[in-house]
Amino acid sequence: MDFKPLSQFIDRITSWRIPWAEVLVMQNNVPVFRYRSGFANLEEKTPIRESHIFNLYSMTKILTCTAALQLVERGAMLLNDPLAEYLPEYAEMTVKRTLTNGGIELARATRPITVRDLFVMTAGFSYDIETPSLKEVFHRTNGKVPTREFAAALAKEPLLFEPGTHWNYSLCHDVLAALVEVVDGRRFGAYVRDMITGPLGMRDTGFGLSEEQLERLAPQYEYDDALGQPVRMDENRYRLGTEYESGGGGLFSTVSDYARFLNVLTNRGTSTDGVRILSPASVDLMRTDHLDDNTRRDYCRGRTDRNGYGYGLGVRTHCSSAGSGSLSLAGGEFGWTGLAGCLAIIDPESRLTVMYAQHLLNSQKSYVHPRLRNIVYACL
């Protein structure tokens, strides 16, 4: 293996506009390459270190779907169950419909939202966190917005389409976190700690940080084109309240911690020291493409980096090498990304796990991620 091209790529992007980047490559459960470059704090010229904590954003979704799949395994719920069996406020939903004259009307939904719709992003939700109902729950709970209260508030908003008929990236996995709370009885963060991060020894992954961990939190940046440089932008606007545990984007972690979790999925559900968090059957179901022709058009629309990929239970999944131009295995590699530029590559067939991290909001991930993926596979 020769990973020099990968280190050169990391150096190139951190000398371009990304303040820092780190990549960890594991094969056969062993780290075979790790490299980091750049400054965690640009103003103080603090180099990025292994102990630095950052926002995972939507890479949280992989863990959230893992948590929910654990409940499916135990028979606590089924993918085809109506969501309203557990969250009754979703029993009678309305759908926005566009009239021939361009106007909008609200009509009663004819299809129920299912548990599967939450996993697969086909429930009909948006990612609008400024809706009247969400603003109301923020004020009513004095800025706390517990996860269960969030889900009840979101149910008051009309859907964008009939459940199951389209794919739209949305707050589905935040509602999935609330579903876990209702089905299990624990707060989502407590469930994650008890059932996933605790057993795996992931001490730096969670929805909140201790004082010691706050000192290790890397500053977050956004590139300002007018200034020609990154500027500090530390807020995670998807943490809607002080008690809100966002299943869609709320976790903090480190490269080492989250790589440990990702490698469990590479091992089809069991850690190297025998901790099982999912069955192989559940991991295979997670990485199965759940899209049909209609939802696939939605998923790929305007996103050439998704060509050749489908969408499973909260993850992209590689379906066609010819379509993607990716050097990774079709039918093997899966994972997801985060708003600030994180990337997970999980490949059980190649026994490969890649955890890549950066902390830049306008992340350039459509440029970085496909190139990084191809470089990794070429280096093996």
Rank of each mutant, 00 (worst) to 15 (best):
residue 180 V to L: 04
residue 67 A to Y: 00
residue 299 Y to F: 15
residue 116 R to W: 03
residue 222 E to W: 12
residue 22 E to M: 11
residue 309 Y to H: 15
residue 265 L to K: 00
residue 177 A to N: 01
residue 113 I to L: 05
residue 143 G to M: 07
residue 340 A to I: 09
residue 339 L to Q: 12
residue 301 R to A: 15
residue 159 L to S: 04
residue 186 R to M: 11
residue 38 G to L: 09
residue 149 E to D: 14
residue 346 I to M: 11
residue 290 H to G: 12
residue 333 E to W: 00
residue 26 M to F: 01
residue 285 L to Q: 08
residue 134 L to E: 13
residue 293 D to C: 13
residue 217 L to F: 06
residue 111 R to H: 13
residue 175 V to N: 02
residue 181 E to L: 04
residue 142 N to S: 15
residue 229 Q to G: 12
residue 116 R to A: 09
residue 40 A to K: 04
residue 168 N to K: 10
residue 342 C to V: 14
residue 70 Q to Y: 03
residue 24 L to R: 11
residue 74 R to N: 13
residue 304 T to W: 06
residue 303 R to Q: 14
residue 51 S to H: 12
residue 155 A to S: 14
residue 21 A to G: 13
residue 15 S to V: 09
residue 154 L to A: 11
residue 12 R to F: 11
residue 261 F to K: 06
residue 322 A to P: 15
residue 176 L to G: 03
residue 180 V to H: 00
residue 275 V to L: 10
residue 54 F to R: 00
residue 324 S to R: 07
residue 193 R to L: 08
residue 10 I to D: 08
residue 278 L to K: 04
residue 293 D to P: 10
residue 289 D to M: 09
residue 176 L to N: 02
residue 150 F to Y: 12
residue 181 E to Q: 10
residue 88 P to K: 07
residue 199 P to A: 03
residue 239 R to N: 14
residue 176 L to K: 01
residue 54 F to I: 04
residue 224 D to H: 13
residue 218 A to F: 03
residue 266 T to K: 06
residue 245 E to A: 10
residue 111 R to L: 12
residue 132 P to A: 09
residue 341 G to N: 06
residue 61 K to F: 01
residue 151 A to G: 08
residue 331 G to Q: 00
residue 91 A to G: 10
residue 263 N to T: 03
residue 310 G to Y: 05
residue 1 M to C: 14
residue 358 Q to P: 08
residue 138 F to A: 15
residue 137 V to Y: 04
residue 116 R to N: 08
residue 172 C to S: 12
residue 73 E to S: 09
residue 351 R to N: 11
residue 160 L to D: 13
residue 135 K to Y: 12
residue 378 A to T: 10
residue 135 K to W: 12
residue 1 M to S: 15
residue 235 E to H: 07
residue 117 D to K: 00
residue 192 V to R: 00
residue 236 N to Y: 08
residue 204 D to Q: 07
residue 81 D to F: 02
residue 321 S to Q: 15
residue 66 T to C: 06
residue 351 R to S: 12
residue 28 N to I: 11
residue 12 R to W: 10
residue 165 T to H: 05
residue 244 Y to C: 14
residue 281 A to C: 06
residue 193 R to V: 06
residue 91 A to F: 08
residue 103 G to D: 11
residue 327 L to E: 15
residue 249 G to N: 03
residue 359 H to L: 02
residue 131 T to W: 01
residue 258 Y to V: 02
residue 341 G to M: 08
residue 99 L to R: 12
residue 318 H to W: 05
residue 99 L to I: 02
residue 79 L to T: 05
residue 118 L to W: 00
residue 218 A to R: 07
residue 286 M to A: 04
residue 48 I to G: 03
residue 6 L to W: 07
residue 20 W to D: 03
residue 110 T to F: 03
residue 213 Q to N: 06
residue 149 E to S: 13
residue 87 L to V: 09
residue 297 R to V: 12
residue 157 E to C: 07
residue 128 D to P: 09
residue 53 I to M: 07
residue 367 Y to W: 15
residue 255 V to T: 10
residue 274 G to C: 09
residue 251 L to T: 04
residue 380 L to M: 05
residue 211 E to S: 11
residue 79 L to Q: 07
residue 64 T to S: 10
residue 85 E to F: 14
residue 351 R to L: 08
residue 301 R to Q: 15
residue 56 L to T: 03
residue 174 D to L: 01
residue 309 Y to D: 13
residue 169 Y to I: 01
